[in-house]
Amino acid sequence: MVPAVPTTALPAPPSPAGARAASTAPAPAPALAWHPSPVDVAFVRDVSRVEHARRIGGAWLRNVCRMRVARVESAEVVISELCTNAVVHGHGDSVGFRLRHVGGQVRIEVNDHSPSAVPEPVHVGWEMESGRGLWLVDTLIDELGGRWGFTVDGAVAWCVFPIAQIAPLASYESCVPGPESRGHDLGSKSRRR
């Protein structure tokens, strides 16, 4: 005997006794709200794990959220930069990585578990080999039509952007953290003018 396994599938509606399938149209399926499964992982604070986070994020955005490829590629670079910053500048043993889909918006959080001063994007000289990460994040989030920032304690970098190309600014409010964790919203270049 096969043990019963709980499932989220709805049971089939009972068919009326003696009804002929050809004479009646099938009943419409009940409307269910679709909510993509969130991603909530932690990885060892090691630079080799950044590529894993990037692949997880990219696959989730493409396959679960059905985001267009060009937008996914930009989001993957954002994920890489935020995770790299957490690995390089964090002091905890692990890095938390969260992905959420709320009302047509994607929210990404990277937690380095290391409270610190909130970093700002900087422009570095062409001869420098590093230091462009947050500037790149700022540019890409602007292109994605989103916002980004850090919590007050500087431990969590977050960004919010629409799955589709354009979304009204008011819709971001449902994804922005509450006042107790809002921190610094670095926004985007077009919104800071």
Rank of each mutant, 00 (worst) to 15 (best):
M128E: 15
S23I: 04
P26Y: 02
R20W: 12
L99P: 12
R66F: 14
P177E: 04
E51A: 15
A21C: 02
D153T: 04
P28A: 00
K189V: 02
L134V: 00
C83D: 04
E76P: 01
P177Q: 03
E109M: 11
L82P: 03
Q105A: 07
R66A: 14
E51Q: 14
R71H: 10
G58V: 06
P168F: 00
V156F: 04
S37P: 03
A157H: 09
D138F: 00
R193Y: 03
L61H: 05
R68F: 03
S94Q: 15
A12C: 06
V122E: 11
E81P: 05
H113C: 12
L169F: 07
A17M: 12
A25Y: 01
W126M: 07
S130P: 00
H101L: 08
L61T: 11
E51W: 01
A9M: 10
H52V: 14
M1W: 09
T151S: 14
V78Q: 05
D46E: 15
A22L: 13
G149R: 01
G92I: 13
S190Q: 09
F150S: 01
Q105W: 10
E143S: 13
G178V: 04
G96N: 09
S174L: 07
S114W: 07
P26E: 10
I79S: 03
E76T: 04
P36H: 05
V122P: 00
S171D: 10
I166E: 15
A157Y: 05
T8G: 13
V124L: 12
L134K: 01
H184N: 00
G145E: 06
A9Y: 10
P6Y: 08
D112L: 13
P121R: 05
A29R: 14
A117Q: 12
T139P: 00
S15D: 11
L169P: 02
G187D: 01
I141W: 04
D93Y: 10
C83S: 15
G104D: 03
A25K: 03
V95E: 11
V47K: 09
V39D: 05
S15R: 15
P36D: 02
A25E: 03
A4Q: 11
G149A: 04
S181A: 12
A70C: 09
V110K: 07
R66Q: 13
R182C: 03
R71I: 00
E173T: 09
P36Y: 08
P162S: 05
V64K: 13
S94Y: 14
G131T: 03
P36V: 03
E129D: 13
G103Y: 09
P3N: 08
M128T: 08
L144V: 05
C159G: 03
E120N: 06
T84R: 14
P6V: 09
G187N: 03
E127S: 15
A155H: 02
V87T: 15
L61Q: 06
D142L: 00
G154K: 01
A12R: 15
V5R: 07
D46C: 01
W158R: 11
I141L: 04
L186R: 08
V110L: 11
R191V: 06
L186H: 15
